[in-house]
Amino acid sequence: MRITQISVFLSNSLGRLESVCKTLADAAVNINTITILESGDYGIVRMIVDKPSQAREALQAAGFSCKEVEVLAVEVADEPGALYKLLEKTKNAGVNLEYMYAMTKPSGQNPLMIMSFKDIALAEKILG
């Protein structure tokens, strides 16, 4: 399933992430999952939220540099080899995975992996 991720560029200084979270809280946006990639003096925050366009508007109005990015949310069975089988398919099709992180789901369901591909359309076809 194709979903929208919010990516925010942040300087690595105290209180910036808190400020992102406050902006989203004030806009009544729920964060489903969040991951931070840091590189020295800055980082990129990636989030899956319940209302992506409201989240982007609120963050931009607060002066943050942020983007909506299309990613795939792929259900992966909670058993050995499940992720391997999936990645084998994309490898054989020559679709390169750029990054991936897990999204927590309520109990009783399979975990969701959030995956970024350059060729998202092709990846979506393969992973169905």
């Binding site: 991720q5 990516s7 560029f9 990639l37 590189s39 800055y42 990129i44 990636r46 540099s65 942020c66 983007k67 990015v69 750029e98 970024s116």
Partner: peptide, 13 residues
């Protein structure tokens, strides 16, 4: 420029 604050560390680097 705003459009280059992308999703990729590699690009910013």
């Amino acid at each position: 420029q705003d459009k280059y604050y992308g999703d990729s560390i590699a690009q910013i680097e």
